[in-house]
Computed example of a mutant assay.
Amino acid sequence: MDIKLKDFEGPLDLLLHLVSKYEVDIYDVPIVEIIEQYLAYIATLKAMRLEIASEYMVMASQLMLIKSQKLLPTVVENLPDEEDLEQELLSQIEEYRKFKELSEELGKQHDKRAQFYSKPKQELIFEETTLAHDKTIMDLFLTFSKVMASRQETLMQQHTVVERDDYRIEDMMEDLLYRLGGQQKLCLQEIFETCQQKNEMITLFLATLELIKLQQVDVKQSENFGKIYLALPKENKTEKV
């Protein structure tokens, strides 16, 4: 089973996605929290043995430097070069945001102009579905990154245990559907926390993505950074009654 996640357009695109969730001015975001979420995302990609572009790693090293400067106590006054690192990063994100908004506006104008030509109805529906699907999957992936980062220390302490390598995505899918058959919804974070091994967590995550892809489960999140819940679609619930 081949599951592909759509990457961000670059490290600044990932940072802008994280910053925008706080719904405040870019210069007012908690920079340390943003850095930790970025590093958790990169660490999860490594754990899943996915290819990481070098530009993401370069940005990760810069963010680690900024984070260390923010956490260490100030010993020497007047270090303008070091203080400018954070402001320079925020300025880059702000500039990228402006260019992205301009690009999106040009895209809208292009779509408006394209209405003068006939297009197959199926193509329009496919594009709408892809946009909604990508956004849901990426939010889900970032949540999984946080869980992996929080449990990393516990999992590393189990390095002397021989891990099972026979976890199957199909089995995980059946298990999730079985649990949902007896409950209205399942908290995804709580399910991940019951996993004892890293391979088990990764397989469970891929099983969740496949169920979403097949539209066998719905994903719900009431607020930004809130808990994510899995539930059976209304059609499936109706069939079981």
Results as ranks from 00 to 15, higher is better:
1 M>L: 03
3 I>A: 03
4 K>R: 11
4 K>A: 08
4 K>C: 02
5 L>T: 10
5 L>Y: 13
12 L>T: 03
12 L>N: 08
13 D>W: 02
14 L>A: 09
15 L>Q: 03
23 E>K: 15
23 E>Q: 12
27 Y>G: 00
31 I>Q: 01
34 I>N: 04
35 I>Y: 03
36 E>F: 02
37 Q>A: 10
38 Y>W: 07
40 A>G: 13
46 K>Q: 13
52 I>Q: 14
53 A>T: 10
58 V>C: 01
65 L>Y: 12
65 L>N: 09
66 I>V: 13
68 S>L: 15
72 L>G: 09
77 E>H: 13
84 D>F: 05
86 E>V: 08
88 E>A: 10
88 E>Y: 10
89 L>E: 02
90 L>T: 02
92 Q>C: 03
98 K>I: 12
100 K>W: 06
102 L>I: 05
108 K>E: 15
108 K>V: 14
112 K>M: 14
125 I>N: 04
126 F>Y: 07
126 F>Q: 11
126 F>M: 08
128 E>H: 05
135 K>Y: 11
136 T>R: 12
137 I>S: 03
141 F>W: 14
144 F>N: 11
145 S>N: 11
148 M>K: 13
149 A>Y: 09
149 A>T: 08
152 Q>S: 15
154 T>S: 09
156 M>N: 15
166 D>M: 03
166 D>Y: 05
166 D>R: 03
174 E>H: 12
175 D>V: 00
176 L>K: 02
176 L>E: 06
177 L>H: 05
177 L>G: 05
181 G>T: 06
181 G>Y: 01
184 Q>Y: 04
186 L>I: 10
190 E>N: 10
192 F>A: 00
194 T>D: 06
196 Q>H: 07
198 K>H: 00
200 E>L: 01
202 I>E: 12
205 F>K: 11
208 T>H: 03
212 I>A: 09
213 K>C: 04
217 V>R: 02
220 K>A: 03
221 Q>F: 01
223 E>N: 02
225 F>T: 03
227 K>Q: 13
236 N>A: 12
238 T>S: 13
241 V>H: 12
